[in-house]
Design a protein around this nucleic acid. Sequence first.
DNA 1: GTCTATAGCGAGATAGAC
DNA 2: GTCTATCTCGCTATAGAC
Lengths: 197, 197
Amino acid sequence: MMSQATTVSVAPDTRTRILDLAENLLLERGYNAFSYQHIARELGVKPAAIHYHFPSKDDLGTAVVARQLRRLRKWRDLPRVADLPPTEQLEAIFKVYDSHVRQERRVCLFGALAADFLTLPTPMQAELRTFNGELTAWLAQVLAVGKATGALRFMGSPSAKAVQVLTTLAGALQVARVHDETHFHTIVGQLRLELLV
Amino acid sequence: MMSQATTVSVAPDTRTRILDLAENLLLERGYNAFSYQHIARELGVKPAAIHYHFPSKDDLGTAVVARQLRRLRKWRDLPRVADLPPTEQLEAIFKVYDSHVRQERRVCLFGALAADFLTLPTPMQAELRTFNGELTAWLAQVLAVGKATGALRFMGSPSAKAVQVLTTLAGALQVARVHDETHFHTIVGQLRLELLV
DNA sequence: GTCTATAGCGAGATAGAC
DNA sequence: GTCTATCTCGCTATAGAC
């Protein structure tokens, strides 16, 4: 079979397609409402085939979160993002959440898994904690610099504010799902109003 | 069998016990991870027995949300709550969320169901929308009065701020579950800092 | 009225065919 | 290496016993 694909945009291999489908299902229906059947049907294959690529559902779920963590780190370290001034870094993260709403009101990873957290496999819980921890640390740094340079304003410590803002964004995507997109934009509008000088 | 219990604190009847157990499971594990078995085991009865009281799981889920809606209306209209000044009404709602964290990190109804929303039975979705709509309307009113009397401060419209604050509170309970209680208190601390004059 | 026995289905997973 | 046939289990729900 083909070489290991460091190539640039060939049709994704089966493993990647499974991961993509699982991620969609996870963000759209939650961990306990998606099954190997859903993925197999889309893939034109029997459910048991997925077990070759991911022995258990736990493995698959954990792999999805682990990949999102890798993506977060990559995104955060991109010169295009890392070298931006704080206000634009803030807008950049808003934009990520905005793209979720527009993809059929997908919630974010955290919002998709938090409610079912106690039913998740332990390694998946650990990855999610790391994911949220690193994202929060990144935003705290952004807010700290923004306040120091006078480009952003807020009360309390940068890290407390970072936790609050990310929590609000995660919740905003959930509200968009239950009601409609306008609620999401209302909330992001509030955040802009309050944070931007 | 016994009279219909308008009495004041007898052991709850079976229907109520089922509702209570279902509510706990819903807030602790999510809709798709709780089963009639869990309830039946606690109750010392066979799973099928539950079907007598609630024909389908959809009925049970919907009944749980409907009851919470009734409770919200009752709470909101209590003189003890309705007659309070805005700052204390705000503290009262904070206290409700705080009691959730302390009950083994239970998330709120909205936070428990939002992620799985698309997998919920339609009547349950409708009840949840109503629940969240009425809660938001109530808080918007509280904020409006608070701003008018100078007791509370915030940017934007009362209803926009209400959506934002409730979203943040729902998210805060989820963060408490994934990480720990301190995150919840950090977020509520931020809200107090920002809203209270 | 309240609950049990049991059907019927879909889930995740194993063993082995190609 | 990749996938299919099949097992087993736990779930929701029906029919009917007490």
